[in-house]
Nucleic acid binder design. Structure first.
Lengths: 147, 147
DNA sequence: GCATGTTGTAACACTTTATCTTACAACTGA
DNA sequence: TCAGTTGTAAGATAAAGTGTTACAACATGC
């Protein structure tokens, strides 16, 4: 199964805030319009990003804003914030290998470190990419349109 | 969401075949006993591994066997064979960003290559690990038990 | 203080996917 | 021919993702 679209939606939200914070109030309705999902979906993700100390959301008044420099927020931070995988484990290991079978009771030992290495490789790459990179490239594509 | 347990089950199957092929006939029932799932689940995975030319399954007679040297089968081969993600895309991108919004119509452009890099990092690591590594380590753990 | 707009969150519906299970025809080797 | 096994369909169940409605809590401007 794929990694939940919450992740790409969250990145989209950051890109929107960065692009429009000077000109608009970034309400869940506004963001929902750009992402094209229900505002409640946006609010739920905003809550997760807020819990991870990546953004603030103004109750009552409305609007979200980013609390750190864009180049200090990595895709891994966002990925973690929106909890795309259970317990941080990318792979779902079959639950009950047979302990009476020599292979069954040792497959976890033999495989776990390798699965972990694979996951690490992915997460390392996520750490290398920041929201700033996304915002910069998005702007570049937008400017390219205006030529 | 996590990557389907079909993947770890498939690896478990390889470990079993390698460990027991001299002493037992590797039927779906036997494998199901070690993995601790329904034999039909095993058969379906065996079909996928067979379609990827990694194993053969004897109809009628029964039993599965591996068709290549263990060190020529990577975890990536297995992962691909059991189709853990749709269209080979690890990330589920939200379907309909708003084309009327500058960010909405460019977020795909700005993000796709980065998601691809992340996926590549993971797949590269998978390519580095072979079934031989798993089998070897499993045997090591089994021998350790007998001390 | 009140009206207005917004957030935070619960509740529920719907869809999709994974996983499990039963059943049985097709096949193979003894 | 028989016994054991595979291949596969069909349906059950469970879990997660996603969409939607509703509404209390809250902040701000007037």
């Amino acid at each position: 199964m794929q990694i939940s679209s919450r992740f790409t939606v969250a990145v989209h939200i950051f890109a929107c805030i960065a692009a429009f914070e000077k000109d608009y109030k970034l309400t869940s309705d506004f963001l929902a319009g750009s992402v094209n999902v229900n505002p409640v979906v946006i609010r739920r993700i905003l809550q997760q990003l807020k819990a991870a100390n990546l953004i603030t959301v103004s109750r009552g008044g409305g609007g979200a804003s980013i609390v750190k420099p864009l180049n200090e927020i990595t895709l891994f931070d966002v990925y973690n914030a929106v909890e795309c995988v259970e317990n941080g484990k990318l792979f779902h290991f079959h639950e009950n290998p047979n302990p009476k079978c020599p292979v069954g009771r040792n497959i976890h030992n033999a495989l776990d470190d390798k699965l972990h290495r694979i996951q690490q490789a992915m997460e390392n790459e996520m750490c290398k990419i920041t929201i700033f990179d996304i915002v910069k490239d998005t702007q570049a594509y937008i400017e390219q349109e205006n030529k």
